[in-house]
Design a protein around this nucleic acid. Structure first.
Length: 284
DNA sequence: AGAGTAGCCTGTAAGC
DNA sequence: TGCTTACAGGCTACTC
């Protein structure tokens, strides 16, 4: 699923490929009525035509295309959204929901099997992005900042990590990986964590995200459903995860079978030995 | 205010 | 074999 490393990988690839290009035609599938949020498909098309892509940013899991008229095309891929960059005349792609033809003859195609993805064309991106928590890879994101933002909450730490208002960009995979790296049980109430544990958790979050970035993201399902790059190629971080979707397989650190539990409505994976829940062990 | 959960979607896999 | 059910998870909207 696209989390921070997958969206950032896409942002970097898009900058290489489409920066400075101009939209010459835009099509939105009538089969995706919820994709464009702020205007009708026709208004969306007219507003984009002739606009140039001046820069591409990211905030949490949102992409931000900054256009030559000052407008922002903000995109969230949710679960199964992918951009593909195709030359003119390339064959069809399944689950195609929108096409952006560019002035070099290429096409930016948006494919999304589950149709959860969203696009907003807005003058002020804060309309969409306000309320997001800090960027976990920014230098200003420190263990103290993490503790200040979530240290009072009674919910399980795993649920809090998924809350985009607390920290922007973590999803199910990188939350589980960060907690394993920090040796913290996912069910621990956030407010029960010690200062030392917040330091470990901060390090775990940064390490999990940076590993994902180094491996160009994680791609777990088939390429039709999960993250791929502009050429349809998956990332490789799924081969390096420690706990995510490894239920029953031995922990790489201690050999104990990885367990799965349900938390915050999500599957949660952890090592019961490396991530102890008891008060005695938690002090470690 | 904070916590928990149904619903949005579609495809895959497990169970009977 | 073929049907039904559970599951996958980011986010919003809703309830308590």
């Amino acid at each position: 699923m696209p989390e921070l490393p997958e969206v950032e990988t896409l942002r970097r690839d898009l900058r290489e490929r489409v920066l400075g290009r101009t939209f010459v035609e835009v099509w939105v599938s009538p089969d995706a009525p919820r994709l464009v949020r702020e205007q009708s498909p026709e208004e969306f098309r007219k507003a984009l035509m002739g606009r140039r892509i001046d820069d591409i940013g990211r905030r949490g899991k949102y992409l931000d295309f900054i256009l030559s008229d000052g407008q922002h095309l903000v995109v969230h891929r949710r679960m199964s959204g992918n951009f593909l960059h195709r030359r003119d005349g390339a064959g069809p792609d399944p689950y195609l929901r929108a096409v952006f033809r560019l002035d070099d003859g290429s096409e930016l195609r948006y494919c999304d099997l589950r149709k959860f993805g969203s696009m907003w064309l807005v003058a002020d991106p804060a309309l969409v992005l306000a309320g997001l928590g800090p960027e976990p890879l920014d230098p200003g994101f420190t263990p103290a900042e993490l503790e200040r933002r979530v240290g009072h909450r009674a919910a399980p730490i795993k649920s809090v990590l998924l809350d985009q208002r607390a920290i922007a960009g973590l999803g199910n995979l990188y939350s589980d990986e960060a907690l394993f790296a920090a040796r913290i049980h996912p069910q621990r109430p956030a407010r029960s964590l010690s200062r030392k544990e917040f330091r470990r958790l901060h390090g775990g979050i940064v390490a999990a995200l940076e590993q994902g970035l180094r491996n160009r993201g994680s791609s777990l399902g088939s390429s039709l459903r999960d993250h791929v790059n502009l050429d349809g190629v998956p990332g490789s971080n799924q081969d390096r995860v420690q706990v995510f979707q490894r239920t029953g397989e031995p922990c790489y650190t201690c050999g104990t079978p990885i367990r799965r539990m349900r938390l915050g409505g999500r599957s949660t994976h952890y090592c019961p030995r490396c991530q102890p829940s008891g008060a005695m062990e938690a002090r470690g």
